[in-house]
Design a protein around this nucleic acid. Sequence first.
RNA 1: GCCCUCGUAGCCCAAUGGCAGAGGCAGAGGACUUAAAAUCCUCCAAGUGUCGGUUCGACCCCGACCGAGGGCACCA
Length: 670
Amino acid sequence: MAYRKDSAVNWCPDCQTVLANEQVIAGLCERCDNAVTKKKLNQWYFKITDYAERLLDDMKALEGKWPDKVLTMQRNWIGKSVGAEVTFEIEGRAEPITIYTTRPDTLYGATFMVVAVDSELARELAIGGKVESEFKTYFDSVKAASDIDRLATDRPKSGIFLERFATNPVNGERIPIWASDYVLADYGTGAIMAVPAHDQRDLDFAQAMKLPVRTVVETDGEDPATSGIATAGEGKLINSGSLNGLSSEAAIAKINSELAAKKLGKAANNYRLRDWLISRQRYWGTPIPIIHCEKCGEVPVSLDQLPVKLPDATGLDLKPKGTSPLATATDWVNVPCPKCKAPAKRDTDTMDTFVDSSWYFLRYTSTNTHDAPFDKNEVETWLPVDQYVGGVTHAILHLLYSRFFTKALHDMGYVSFTEPFSRLLNQGMVLKDGSAMSKSRGNLVRLSDELENHGVDAIRLSMVFAGPPEDDVDWSDVSPAGSAKFLNRAWRVSGDVTSKPGVDFNTGDLALRKITHKSLHDIGIAVESFRFNVAVARVMELVNAVRKAIDSGCGGADPAVREAGEVIAIALSLVAPFTAEEMWERLGHKPAIALAGWPIFDPKLLVEDAVTAILQINGKIKDRIEVSPTITDAQLQALALANPGVIAGLGGATVKNVIVRAPKLVNIVI
RNA sequence: GCCCUCGUAGCCCAAUGGCAGAGGCAGAGGACUUAAAAUCCUCCAAGUGUCGGUUCGACCCCGACCGAGGGCACCA
């Protein structure tokens, strides 16, 4: 699962450390927004690519439980592609070259081959030939270009002919081999067959280098050789020997089995996902628990020595300088080899902090466990996390790594589940003048002033009420003053209640009780579906209703008023706990409201005495009538057809159809 | 270029395919007050981005377009 390799890695010159692919956003460092360069280094990796297929597959079970957006981003990041590997013989080389393609059906249209200029393969093909110096010049110019330049898709194609030839296995055709930077060294095999007629990149290259274009899939599109637009869609195969006349899909199946039979190729998949580079040249991080011994090689620190703790930072230069600060802590670095006891050295890099966040939720269940990372029983009791809440900024980084860790730990027998977070909510950000409030940019408003002016309950309430939790909210739309006003209004209700705690609510005003229980029902549903803004609105309604009851209805002594007041206090305790607690005590209860529990609504009180039925003709409202909620379709239809407004509206026209949805609606079609 | 999400009163936002408004902000008027604040009451506003389609009926489903936001982008 962990291995070390030499590779050209992402390097942030500003942070002076390496970065994982996931931490490079459009060529820029995720942390500091500076351009990332490449550096050849020997670093540690986790084999997340072994889990690519399962990370992709298991997302099916997260559909509807995680935001689609996050699932899409992870699918894009994993980037599965289905295709085939095909082997080409090379003139003057014993070993053939294997290429990866998603369109094996276009094999007859391959008019040249391209290898990544920065691949070992290109180097080997060029060195010793007459293009060696030309190749080196091109290679150096490519190396000098930044990642950002390289990411531009509208860049003109560049490359050099290596003066070497490959043989197309299906038709024996001799095709030239080119080196270019539009082929990536670390994807697939670093070499492609170029089919200019049906791949835009290949066509651009062919036109730039005056290479032939041969159409092998007949589509509605214009001839790519003259239009300059590759026809990438499916069609009927032509100029393709035994594949002629087949659809693309059938051709792919046929060519794959033919190649497999001749051992010239096979169906294969590829993933955009790369292994996770976890080494960092940092002090703050988890030391890599490996000891390097000249004789024994990489030796893991023994179990009883774990975890490896960082050396005292005193006296160490912790400023980023491109090498690990731990290397200078010689007392810490120099240790005997656990195997042969000869002098050896600790690995001086630390791990990416995303390694820590990939399993912290396991540790959180087991804070009293000191001889293991986590306690299996505790983990099984508490996990997986039922509801996870986090920003969409971690859609790929933290959330993909955590899923990978969980699966790997599952396979090693440490946990029984394969997904860490059953449900995910992406909360939105708070914006001020277009910028997000964040750790790096700060609050952007003086929170102390806001708290001083309005109180923490009002601030929290107004944030919750401003909109759905997954939406961003602009600070100018947050109204702590309005919330403070509402909290006051709610709080005053608790002072207007004159009945004693424990009074029998059943003797209270029925109309108000119905409103209270309907509110309770609706608030519960809103909270459980994370529509907190709606839940708050329902509490506001209830406050309005009880205010009216106190001032001009049943009065503050009615038990129903107490019931409503208590429901308001308990509901508010979710977002305004201080106000709610005061209300609770003013209502004559002992602390704390948190112990009061959630009241159960009475289904009988949800039944309305009468409902308004809408009478429509052709979908247009003609009248409204009050009816019993238990009225039947037939009864309602009869009432509708006898309604004066309806009769007038019909004007004697023939009724074609009557749609009845008792007790709410009748629609008469004429 | 490809993919996803979202467009409802001046603003933030609600509405199992069935009365477009639940709630709030802002605004107007009134009550209380010597006055103001606070409080209470009342009022105010959109026909749901545009154009089609499906349906007895569409903010809701489908298609195209416009606009905003986000993701991916030389991955063969």
